[in-house]
């Protein structure tokens, strides 16, 4: 499995990372190096083996249905570049 220049641009766009044309070939070879490295795992036959989701035999922790959090809108928006009346204010997102 290898990625080409267009795939690199597409991944960058989906992740909202700006990538210049000059950077693309370098990123492509880095990504392909990573993919080649991981591809070594393909040598192991894992058919019939359940994917491991945790190194410890644990169950998903659950919590009771109680309101225990919230009520601090000022803290929620404290780091926002722009806010008003405790709303986040962002550039207009509809055309």
């Amino acid at each position: 499995m290898a990625v080409d220049d267009n795939t690199v641009r597409r991944i960058a766009h989906l992740a909202r990372i700006r990538v210049t044309d000059e950077e693309v070939p370098h990123l492509r070879s880095e990504l392909n190096a990573i993919l080649d490295f991981v591809a070594q795992l393909d040598q192991v036959d894992v058919s019939g083996v359940e994917p491991m989701t945790s190194v410890l035999p644990m169950d998903l922790r659950q919590r009771e249905d109680k309101v225990t959090d919230g009520g601090y809108a000022d803290r929620i928006v404290a780091n926002a570049p722009q806010s008003e009346d405790n709303y986040f204010v962002v550039p207009k997102v509809v055309e």
Partner: peptide
């Protein structure tokens, strides 16, 4: 997202 509170911005709750 609320789009009608300001002309050039959207408000997020």
């Amino acid at each position: 997202s609320i789009h009608d509170l300001a002309p050039a911005s959207s408000y997020v709750d």
